[in-house]
Computed example of a mutant assay.
Amino acid sequence: MNFTKTTEQDSEYNDLEKMTISELLFNINKEDKTVPLAIEKALPQIEKLTEQIVDKLKNGGRLFYMGAGTSGRLGIVDASECPPTFGVSHDLVIGIIAGGDSAIRKAVEFAEDSTEQGWNDLLEHAISQKDIVIGIAASGTTPYVIAALAKCNENGIITGCITCNENSPLATTASFPVVVVVGPEFVTGSSRMKAGTAQKLVLNMISTTTMIQLGKVKGNKMVDMQLSNNKLVNRGINMLASELQIDVLTAEALLKKYGNVRNAINNYKNE
Rank of each mutant, 00 (worst) to 15 (best):
N27A: 13
A195P: 01
T7E: 10
R262N: 06
V217G: 01
G183M: 13
L214F: 02
A103V: 08
S71P: 15
T209Y: 08
V182C: 08
R262G: 03
V88F: 15
L149C: 11
G259K: 09
Q226N: 08
S191M: 06
L24E: 06
N27V: 12
K106I: 09
V233A: 09
A195R: 00
A264M: 13
I94W: 08
V181N: 15
E109Q: 15
V181Y: 12
S242Q: 07
T172R: 04
I265T: 09
E40G: 14
K48F: 04
T197L: 03
K48G: 05
L203K: 03
S242I: 04
T6C: 04
T172W: 02
N155H: 00
T85R: 11
A68S: 14
S71H: 15
D10Y: 05
E8H: 03
S128N: 03
S190K: 15
A174C: 07
L149N: 04
T209D: 05
G156P: 06
N238H: 10
C161A: 08
V178F: 02
C161I: 01
A126E: 15
L57D: 09
C161G: 01
Q226W: 06
D113A: 07
D15Q: 08
C82N: 13
E31F: 10
L149Y: 14
L37G: 07
G215D: 07
A174F: 15
V233P: 02
I136R: 13
C161H: 04
Y268E: 04
A126L: 12
A174E: 13
R73E: 07
M205P: 05
S191H: 08
K18N: 00
I206E: 05
C161N: 04
E51M: 07
F86C: 04
N2V: 00
N165L: 07
V93R: 10
S190H: 13
T115E: 15
F26G: 09
A111F: 15
L240W: 01
F26Q: 14
G100M: 11
K194S: 01
G236C: 06
W119Q: 09
I21Y: 04
S22D: 10
K151P: 03
E51R: 09
Q245W: 09
V179I: 00
I212C: 00
